[in-house]
Amino acid sequence: MFKKMNFTKIIINVFIIAFMFIWILPTIGLLVTSFRPASEVSSTGWWTVLNSPLKFTQFTIENYQQVLNQGGMAYAFRNSFIIAIFGTALPVLVAAFAAFGLAKLQFRGRAVVYTIIVGLLVVPLQLTFIPVLKIYNALNLSGTFVGVWLAHTGYGLPFAVFMLHNFFSSLPDDLFEAAYIDGASIWTSFYKLALPLSVPAIASLVIFQFLWVWNDLLVALIYLGGFQEVAPLTVKLSSLVGSYGQNWHLLTSAAFISMVVPLIIFFALQRYFVRGILAGSVKG
């Protein structure tokens, strides 16, 4: 019995490692490519470095230098942070209020409201560009950060409400009843009970939303435009490539530069992330 267990474990581990390897292979290729000179990238594949992995002369940091040294990179980083921080904080804040209300407060029609909000998940955001942009133009919001924050809040809310609603629903009602008997208002039970208990769920939501906003090119391009004062990193990096696709080798190093921030966020919140995904699925 013991031996059999061990055997299945080994099989599972082998599978997991194999899948992880397949999963990460393109990223490794990208990393290797980002350190190779343009002439070699165009003539041989990245795996050719495996023939002589210790020959350091075949690598160069020129791609990184070229990306970082072009004008306006500091601007782009700043803009990306301004957009991503508020584009994450706003929807998470609003979604936490909304999800708590929908999950724990009794009022007529809450199932309908919840269904409508979750139903919005299937609306493609491309559909909203023209009408929203028209309203923004009338309100002088196009080309401003406030406009793009509101847009990201709108696009992020359905999923955020959906995720937090499920989590809040899994919290036992007894807990809130006890708090109510002790004299806690709705606000106190949200702030003192629901929020601290849902840190894992909120942390994973923050990761999701931050990644989406940080990596977004389309929403920023539509509502902010490509002007240097407001353009985020993604817009800036896409302008590295010429109209015929020249300089695409620079995109490999650009990808890693823009990946640094999400990686930091992910590792900082990682231990919440795993708990957050499990949130509500098992009691323990």
Partner: peptide, 26 residues
């Protein structure tokens, strides 16, 4: 949030001309 929003509005008020194109890099 509001303050940050006001500071960040792109200063488009000046006399300017916006040009859109596919060009990048060189």
């Amino acid at each position: 949030v509001l303050m940050a929003g006001m500071f960040s509005s792109a200063a488009l008020a000046q006399d300017s001309v916006s040009v859109m194109a596919v060009w990048g890099g060189q």
